[in-house]
Nucleic acid binder design. Structure first.
Length: 479
RNA sequence: GGGGUCGUAGUCUAGAAUGGUAGGAUGCUGCGUUCGGGACGCAGAGAUCGCGUGUUCAAAUCACGCCGAUCCCA
């Protein structure tokens, strides 16, 4: 008996080590031979595919279609919007040669595709009839991370989607920004069972090149904040340099209004951190590649035949209900090994089917998220979808309860400095001056993660300078 | 941005101060016995000791450089 195949670090004691072990041992991902790069394995990729399927459906409903953009962007294009370029330049990978020939206009490996997309958009858009134009791109982006890389959370290349929409009016574009943010919020809460805080980024933290950035942020079990997705209102900051223009009904030429938005495989990292435990991964049923694993238990060939056949029957019934089922028929492992294996991989429900169960006309059902075991009669199998829904709901509830317990209001700076050491989300009044924001960051390591919508409150004074405050942002240390 | 720690079979690691045959556990392969919470026996394969250079008769071990991983602090 060895514990070394399993997770050896405790989540509460050694969070970083625990996280890395879960990623590697649940076979979600592995390190690539180049610093900061990561290989996604089938166990991890199927979670991404599940998220992708959900987003695609929701994007389609919002009139957004998918496209594809190349990975190389000439420097001359990337530099067209000045602030955007300055913001990204320090972390851009450059292609300087083709074979042995030096490339004159060197090529960036896309850190994000605004400049490339809008070069194309300016060709495609001429008339008000061409608007709105809404395209989403599933691809990877590359941003050099010199230090502090971590699987899923901070890698030099990451899987994401980036959406780019173009509108005739500012209002319509801003509505789009919000609509996307809502899709992000719903998907993260409903699929990944992770509660989010929704709102706006501060000027300092907004996307370089945007008028403003809206965001969803979540608190992780170690007290750090993770940005889960962003939706940017670009105004005309890009449409002007890239000449994305249209002739309106009155034949007057106007610059368009634009948005861009994205979520990345960071969401998978968040899911691991929020739901995982000392046994390993815990998958929310909706994104679990395998929702139910059946472990047959038998001593001889007669039992084996009978039990495997019953397992297949159950599998068939469940598959009719669109449930993803796997029967673990591996002969080389004992059932104890299999239990631990599937627990580490986070499968939401395990069914044990042995001679004893056959006699009782029931199966043993074990829930991963709370380790609860119960018997279920063969006739009651119809309630499995309801059980899966219930697990999904309870995982979100539990995550909410914990997030709430890690979030608090505070207005005394000295107290804040002390409390921030323990991590968590702090709702604290702020005067909206960047000086205060920067000083707080310098002195405590915490920054403004998000200014929640409807957080206006004029009764407080800025936690740092004691001047009049009108809003209550969330301060936290971030990933 | 500043500082620290660490790289030895797939994985975890012993060996390093005092240079001289790389040892164990687990995993893997085969056969047999097992099977209601990480089973056991026997046999076997698997390592140019992260990479490079230097010192030396001799380097996993000493020196320097690089690559990679990881933690803490701003």
């Amino acid at each position: 008996m060895s514990k070394e195949v399993g997770i050896t670090a405790l989540k509460d004691k050694d969070f970083s080590e625990w996280y890395t072990q879960v990623v590697l041992k649940a076979k979600l991902a592995d390190y690539a031979p180049v610093k900061g790069l990561m290989v996604l394995r089938p166990e991890g990729y199927s979670i991404w595919e599940s998220l992708k399927a959900t987003f695609d459906k929701k994007f389609a409903n919002a009139g957004i279609r998918n496209g594809f953009l190349p990975v190389l962007i000439p420097e001359s294009l990337l530099g067209k919007e000045k602030k955007h370029f300055e913001g990204f330049n320090p972390e851009v990978f450059w292609v300087t040669h083709s074979g042995t020939n030096k490339i004159g206009d060197r090529l960036a490996l896309r850190p994000t595709s605004e400049t490339l997309a809008y070069t194309m958009y300016s060709k495609w858009i001429q008339s008000w009839r061409d608007l709105p134009l809404k395209i989403n791109f599933w691809n990877t982006a590359l941003r050099a991370e010199i230090k502090a890389t971590k699987p899923f959370l901070r890698t030099s290349e990451f899987l994401w989607q980036e959406g780019h929409t173009v509108h005739a009016t500012s209002n319509e574009a801003q509505d789009e920004v919000l609509k996307i943010l809502e899709i992000y919020k719903n998907t993260v809460e409903e699929e990944l069972a992770i509660p989010v805080n929704i709102g706006r980024k501060s000027e300092k933290e907004k996307f370089v090149g945007a008028i403003y950035t809206d965001t969803i942020e979540s608190v992780m079990p170690d007290g750090k904040a993770l940005q889960m997705g962003t939706s940017h209102f670009l105004g005309q900051n890009f449409s002007k340099p890239f000449e994305v223009k249209f002739a309106d009904k009155d034949n007057v030429e106007h610059y368009t209004w634009q948005t861009s938005w994205g979520v990345s495989w960071r969401l998978i990292g968040a899911m691991i951190m929020v739901h995982g435990d000392d046994q390993g991964l815990v998958l929310p049923p909706k994104v679990a590649p395998i929702q139910i694993v059946i472990v047959p238990i038998y001593k001889n060939d007669t039992e084996k035949k009978e039990i495997i056949s019953k397992s297949e029957e159950i599998k068939h019934i469940l598959e009719q209900k669109d449930i993803r089922v796997h029967i673990d028929v591996r002969e080389e492992f004992s059932m104890g090994y299999k239990f631990n294996d599937w627990e580490m991989k986070g499968v939401p429900i395990r069914m044990e089917l042995g001679p004893r169960d056959m006699k009782n006309n029931s199966i043993m059902l074990a829930k991963r998220y709370n380790a609860e075991k119960s018997n279920l009669n063969f006739e009651e199998i119809d309630i499995i979808p309801a059980i899966l829904n219930d697990i999904q709901k309870m995982m979100l509830e539990n995550a909410k309860t914990r997030a709430d317990s890690m979030s608090r209001h505070i207005s005394d700076y000295e107290e804040f400095k002390k409390e921030i050491e323990n991590g968590g989300f702090f709702f604290a009044p702020w005067c909206e001056s960047m000086d205060c924001e920067e000083n707080i960051k310098k002195e405590t390591g915490a920054d403004i993660r998000v200014i929640p919508f409807n957080s206006e409150d004029e009764s407080k004074k800025c936690m740092y300078c004691q001047k009049q405050s009108k809003i209550i942002p969330i301060f936290a240390r971030g990933y």
